[in-house]
Design a binder for these strands. Structure first.
Ligand SMILES: [Mn+2]
Ligand SMILES: [Mn+2]
Ligand SMILES: [Mn+2]
Ligand SMILES: [Mn+2]
Lengths: 218, 218
DNA sequence: AACTATTTTTAGACTTGCCTAAAAATTAAA
DNA sequence: TTTAATTTTTAGGCAAGTCTAAAAATAGTT
């Protein structure tokens, strides 16, 4: 059984393993977990002793199969709980992350299995992030963002890459929620801000906002 | 915010505060939490510094209003989660305690409030234990046990005083579940074992079993 | 290639929660 | 009421996880 802290380290390493081919650097982990590089080095040694990561001094860290498996199972729990909070307890999508950060560390295989069933085996969480299956398989998004769409193109919102409350609340206020169909009317060359149609409304959004919205082309 | 460990100490102290008028002794707490008396002394000092308990050397410990309030809120969460696990996820009543021991430490007022609503504001948990309301009011059982009933008397099962899996599974196997109506047919003078009717069935149960069943007289 | 800036690791220390062993206080027994 | 048994506290130490400051390694730049 792993501690709360160990699980958070594995999750952080997993998050950046997918983004770079090399080992995840000490500083990146420290940044993600809001801690110090020296603390990360300490913990990495411990995880290495437990054969959950492979570690070579100064060369960053990679997950072993077992480490990866734990990380994915924590992510699975996080996302399932988020679905529960939104679907069953009527939380808003910007309110659930912090609670799920706690719930993801509850240890009980049976609980996860039953929760999954209770929620009708959801494939995506409230932010459009894919939920790993019970065997640890995880689909990845295509990662086309709204900022990639050309003028005149249509798409549907399938996810967000940024989870801050302010961003999510903003999106909701302009009806840019999961499933919304949009069309790009215009793009300003200078700052890449966009004019888009959402249903019968038209809004202007910054590049900062559009590049964090994952879309599926229509 | 209090740690997982602090909450468990407060809960343990609360449990025995109701049973004795004086302060709860170090050894009783150590026993309840499966730890050593010296560890208890350490933690009591810390809780005393935080004004959650009143502590006089060698005189045991009592909860302050704030300490009691935290203990009751943890118990409230424990029992609400047990209801959730049984009512929504179809766990058996002997399977939920350990998971609730973890879930009771999730910190979120809003979560508890919504969970309570989602469960239709239950008044009792799956073991018949009363659920404190959101203001910390806690009803107590009358504490009449099956072993208190005289020959010929009828009663209904409203709770259990012992929560071990083996006891709960045994009760279930003979249909001695919450709500079951029973009648005392006979009591053996020698060992106080009982013959009782449950519906159309008749069973013999030991005094050890009958004294842990809370009943309401009919 | 040598110097500089950045990243990473080490060294040493702190807090929390726990332990064992021994001392002190309380309670029970003679 | 002295002695013995029990309970409780103190003293000292350990593991986990964290921190700061300093040393070592790597990467970047003339
Ligand atoms: Mn989240
Ligand atoms: Mn999410
Ligand atoms: Mn319980
Ligand atoms: Mn219960």
């Amino acid at each position: 059984m792993n501690t709360y802290t160990e699980e958070n380290y594995l999750k952080a390493i997993f998050k950046y393993s997918n983004k770079t081919k090399e080992g995840v650097s000490t500083n990146v982990i420290a940044d993600e977990l809001d801690t110090k590089a020296s603390s990360v080095t300490d913990m990495i040694k411990k995880l290495s002793d437990k054969k959950l990561v492979i570690y070579k001094k100064y060369k960053g860290v990679t997950l072993t199969n077992e480490g990866r498996s734990i990380a994915v199972s924590v992510i699975r729990k996080h996302r399932l709980w988020e679905v529960f909070l939104v679907e069953k307890l009527d939380f808003k999508w910007d309110e659930v992350h912090d609670i799920a950060e706690q719930l993801e560390h509850i240890h009980s295989e049976e609980l996860v299995k039953r929760l999954d069933t209770f929620l009708d085996n959801p494939k995506y969480d409230p932010h459009g992030d894919p939920i790993p299956d019970e065997y640890g398989n995880l689909q990845h998004h295509k990662d086309i963002t709204l900022s990639d769409l050309a003028i005149g193109k249509k798409g549907v919102i399938v996810g967000v890459k940024e989870h801050s409350t302010s961003y999510l609340k903003y999106l909701e206020s302009i009806n840019l929620v999961l499933g919304a169909e949009i069309k790009v009317n215009n793009i300003v060359d200078f700052d890449h801000s966009m004019s888009i149609s959402i249903g019968k409304n038209t809004v202007n959004i910054s590049n900062q906002a559009s590049k964090n919205l994952i879309v599926k082309k229509l």
